[in-house]
Design a protein around this nucleic acid. Sequence first.
DNA 1: GCCGTTCGATACGCGAATGTATGGGATACA
DNA 2: TGTATCCCATACATTCGCGTATCGAACGGC
Lengths: 223, 223
Amino acid sequence: MTASDTAAPKRVTRRRAQTRQRLLDAALEVFAEEGFGRSTVDQVCERAGYTRGAFYSNFTSLDELFLAMWEQRSGAMLDDLREALQRLGTLESVSPDEALRAVLDAVPIDDAWYRVTAEFTAHALRNPSLRRVMAAREEAIHDTLLPLVEAALVRAGRRVTDRTGLGHALVAVHDGTAVQCLLEPDDEAVRQRREELFRHVVNAYSSAYSTAYSTQSEGALDE
Amino acid sequence: MTASDTAAPKRVTRRRAQTRQRLLDAALEVFAEEGFGRSTVDQVCERAGYTRGAFYSNFTSLDELFLAMWEQRSGAMLDDLREALQRLGTLESVSPDEALRAVLDAVPIDDAWYRVTAEFTAHALRNPSLRRVMAAREEAIHDTLLPLVEAALVRAGRRVTDRTGLGHALVAVHDGTAVQCLLEPDDEAVRQRREELFRHVVNAYSSAYSTAYSTQSEGALDE
DNA sequence: GCCGTTCGATACGCGAATGTATGGGATACA
DNA sequence: TGTATCCCATACATTCGCGTATCGAACGGC
């Protein structure tokens, strides 16, 4: 263990970045299949096409890999969501239903990702620093989501009455209904109930405004 | 390995029942603290005050113990909920808010239990037979919850418009908001938003009826 | 193409967890 | 109280996963 070993690499090769990414991708697959707790370093390496040497050269523990992978993936999903909402903002006019569909399509219900997230959440509830990471992520979701959702709703003829309430409600409803959809993947009714619940929530946290869509949609939203 | 070894015990002593129960209790604690995947047979046994001999005499694997424990605990929670709702049904008259409070109090947000459930859910999504177990449990929740909730709502001056929709919505909202409460345990606002969301949902899936509480509560529920 | 640096494969030792086989003490029942 | 049965502790062999140390090969700069 000389000084050069502990020193940070002067130049990071592109090969390194690639292996790191492959390990991150493999981690998602393995964790989803085996569960994080039951996964081993060997399994991840084998899936990625490496041996343990590559792993310990890039990460210090499975925990670190788990965190890095989760942050990368959830960040990517947030980017997708942001993009979808911004695209929505460029359109001429949007009905509430169309807007809802667009948002729900931007956040697909992926069982592999859900399993990983569920375990990450449980893990975070045991670890204060991880809990802060998750809380920060939720904060970021709100910061991204709320202005764009609010804008979309205004364009659809609705004014948001409780911003933070709506934000938390949307996240909670998403999480809660995602499980139901995954537990009964073949039951179309579950997905319809999910959409219905979203409509109710959006309706509850916003009030009608006078616009082309407002009168037409009120009938569909209220009952 | 003689015939008597493989044969089922003729008489089951009360000691056996006790150790089995202690193992189940210890499992909840250990799984909550360490995570199911990271837990070992030894840890559970030590926590329960036994050695591995006791474990392998009662269960064949950690998976089996996990399932048994989860079924017992979730069954007990369902019993609590049923009892609370039935007690609610014996009261003279109840306001919607009081009813909601009673139900929420009957299903306390326990972080240890949540962690375990999160991991069990992820586990169930990997295992078809476990998935059926969870689906059946959700079915049972609905069967218990709906008639009693509906009755309580009627007594509070509200008629349910979509039974199954309400049932699934309540479960989803509970699950989704429970995480938020656990991630920010000291933030009272999160809990208030949770209650608020429940009110909105109950309101959305039921319509006012003419009763003592109906006019009074409409103002609080609708806006 | 040469050379210094970085990256990842291989080999090694260690500790931990598993499942089984067996024996002694506890328990139920007469 | 005696005894047949049951239940759990103990000991053992084995397998598995981890982390490190070392070395050849790939890489990037010149």
